[in-house]
Amino acid sequence: MKSGFVSVVGRANVGKSTLMEKILGEKISIISNKPQTTRDEIKIIYNDENSQIIFLDTPGIQTPRNKLQEHLLEVSEESLKDSDIVTFIVDNSLSIGRLDKMILKLLEKVNRPKVLLINKCDLLDEGEIDQIKKTYIGLNMFDYIIPISALNDENIDKYIEIIKEMLDEGPLYYPSDMITDKNERFIVSEIIREKALQSLNNEIPHGIFVRIDDFKKRENKNLYDIYATIIVERTTHKEIVIGKNGQKIKTIGMKARPEIETFMDSKINLKLWVKVEKDWRKKQKLVTRFGYK
């Protein structure tokens, strides 16, 4: 049995969560066209007949500007220490940008085998892929460099096979039918947050937290009552989330409901509210209270 932990790091919006979804075949991590959507280390558990790979999907690394972002950077750095293999994902940029250089400095301190994935290779020609590969080969840091397209499922199987080759024999860390370490309440809150991010303008890019207030299955019915509060940082943001005549929050609920029902394999009664916690991302007490410890 091959088994072990693989941290997945990269700057925001390079496709980490999309890669995890393709590997797992299930949607666990939040996926949005807005960067900095993943806020927790989410263990994605891949099982097959002769291996168990636990991927540590981490928040996108960036220069922290508030208490929440400081927490996210700590989560990503800790995952590097906890892993057997490090996967660094970059996109189709032809040069190494400022944040990628910052991540590379972190990786220099980590004595682990490393794999580089060049994502979005479907947007590159062969010459451009070779150019990016040569740039990173020159760093003498990576054991493997693999061009992939997470969106188009290109070279994902090759990546999995290489990880299995690199891992040592080990135990089954989790039951073979388990796909993540996160509970249902967490996944549901992430689905709601994703739909909110997708439905809102850039005026409220990241100051949203979804708190599950109640999560109960009705007796003798395949039906869950789920009550959740969308927390924002300003009164003006609350007005935007609610929308004219309540249309925006209604849209968020309508988009979230079918996806939650598919995930839960059950009908759901979803009720949403909006509350203001002024500048919560800057306040350590609130960041901690919301579970970012």
Rank of each mutant, 00 (worst) to 15 (best):
G4S: 02
M102W: 05
L197K: 15
S51Q: 04
S93G: 13
G253F: 08
L272C: 04
T135M: 11
D153Q: 12
T38N: 07
K27I: 00
A228V: 03
D57V: 03
K22Q: 11
K34P: 05
R218N: 09
L94F: 12
T38G: 05
E128Y: 06
V188I: 09
M20F: 01
E165R: 13
T135W: 02
F5Y: 13
I191E: 01
R234Q: 12
K255E: 08
N119P: 04
E190Y: 01
L94D: 04
T235I: 12
K114V: 11
V241F: 01
E78A: 15
G25L: 00
I268E: 12
D265H: 11
V6F: 04
A150E: 01
P64Q: 08
V110E: 15
I204F: 03
D214I: 09
T251A: 11
K275S: 14
L272R: 09
L151C: 05
A196Q: 02
E219C: 04
R39H: 07
M166G: 03
T37C: 04
M254N: 14
Q247F: 13
K255V: 01
Y174I: 01
K120E: 03
L73Y: 06
T63I: 10
P175C: 02
T135Q: 14
L139F: 15
L116Y: 07
L19G: 03
E78I: 14
N66P: 07
W280C: 12
V287H: 12
E126L: 10
I61P: 05
M141A: 06
E78M: 14
K275T: 14
G170V: 03
V287M: 13
L172S: 08
V110D: 11
P59I: 04
A256L: 11
M178E: 02
L172H: 10
I53T: 07
P171D: 12
S7A: 13
F290D: 14
Y173A: 01
V86W: 10
I96E: 08
Y46S: 01
A196K: 04
K278D: 03
R218A: 05
D157Q: 10
N269W: 12
S32P: 05
I242L: 10
E154V: 13
Y136P: 02
I132R: 08
K182F: 00
M141R: 15
L151P: 08
G127H: 14
I160A: 06
T135H: 11
N92W: 00
V75R: 07
D153L: 05
L24Y: 00
F88W: 09
G170L: 02
E261D: 06
D91R: 08
T63L: 07
G243C: 05
K221M: 05
V75S: 03
N155W: 10
I54H: 02
M1C: 05
G138H: 11
K164Y: 01
V241W: 03
Y136Q: 05
L116F: 07
L19C: 04
L270K: 12
K81A: 11
I160N: 08
F186D: 01
S79I: 12
I179Q: 00
V276Q: 12
E239D: 09
K238R: 14
V276R: 11
K221S: 02
M20G: 00
I242A: 05
T38D: 02
Y159T: 00
Q36W: 08
I160H: 09
R257I: 06
T229G: 10
D130A: 15
